[in-house]
Simulated scan of single mutants.
Amino acid sequence: MKIEKQTNIFIAHTPLQNFIATEIVKQFFMEDNFENRLYTSVFVEGDSLFEERYFINKKGGFKKIFQFAKIKRQINRLLKEGNGNIFIPHTAALLDNYYFYDFPLERYNVKINFYYEGILYFYHYLEPYKTHTHLVRKTIGFLSGFNYRIEPEILPVNNDKVNKIFTILKKFTLGPKEKLNEISLLQEGYTPQPGNILILGGKPTLLNNEEVISLYNEMIEFILNLELKTQIFFKGHHADVSNNFEKANIGRINIIDITRNSPVEEVIEDFSPSIILSYPSSGLVNLKAMYGENIEVNSYYIRQKNEHLSKLWPIFDELQIKKILI
């Protein structure tokens, strides 16, 4: 008897989203009756669990419009066959916005789902209006035949359209509890190397460059006071071009730069750190969920801005991530 296949379309825009989409396929959709496809704007190296992977090129003016329209037509053709699932991290990006607000989901029996994007899933976030960004989205949407919806709430978890929400921590995730599906990130058999230290860099939105440099200074002082420091790795954020770490370090510690597009969740086992230092981020939550007591995680932030992240601190306490305020 012929098995009717369900098409799962995942739309991703960051290395972390690629990683989480892969974990969802691995844990929920490996049977023969599922066909999994990934549309991503971040190139994925190596083997894949997806039957098909498509790269979304977001660069270039008219090329970007043509690319968006082409991918939209391609996904529509697949979904209009019926019995489809589409997975988006939020509704801010163009494709995500179109499928949540404009595509006739019920007509074609398509279910739309949210999947874990980071700490955005743990508090009520409202996206600020950015004239240039939203004007570009509006224009591309118009030229591609749909009305891009500008909504500050880019994770409308309580909307009736939402089928399921895939997350790593159900306890803290927003949305109806009956719709929450927990993804396990726990990795068995991880062996940290004593003395291997990983610094995760980046530019937190709410901090200025001087404040970020002060965080790095504290991390470097912590390392200098350690008795055992075998290898020190630095992984910067793929979108950060500030050079704040270099300004703080100035040769104080020797580091191995492992900055790359792949999320730290995918590459950590190549370097086996026992200690991870960073500012508060989704990455720390993910790593502690993956490795638990096998790694020590220290998070640095500015004391005067402590309240900005008040929703995050209970999660850090739950996962035993150490908070250091300066």
Rank of each mutant, 00 (worst) to 15 (best):
A21N: 07
Q27P: 08
Q27N: 10
N36V: 04
L38G: 11
L38Q: 11
Y39F: 15
T40N: 10
L49G: 04
F50P: 07
E51G: 11
E52R: 13
N57L: 04
N57Q: 10
K59A: 07
K64I: 03
Q67T: 15
I71D: 12
G84P: 11
N85T: 06
F87V: 07
H90M: 05
A93R: 10
N97Y: 04
Y101A: 01
Y108A: 02
Y108L: 03
N109H: 14
V110P: 03
F114Y: 04
Y115S: 01
Y115H: 01
L126C: 07
Y129G: 05
H132L: 15
H134W: 14
H134Q: 13
G141F: 10
L155T: 12
P156C: 09
D160F: 07
T167K: 06
L169K: 14
K170L: 04
N181D: 08
L185R: 10
P194F: 08
I197T: 09
I199E: 12
T205Q: 12
E211L: 00
F222C: 06
Q231W: 04
F233D: 02
F233T: 04
K235C: 00
A239H: 11
K247S: 05
N249A: 00
I250C: 14
N254K: 15
T259R: 00
E265D: 08
P280V: 00
S282E: 06
G283R: 04
K288M: 01
N294Y: 08
S299L: 05
Q304G: 13
K311Q: 14
F316M: 04
L319N: 00
K322Y: 01
K323W: 02
I324Q: 05
I324E: 05
L325A: 10
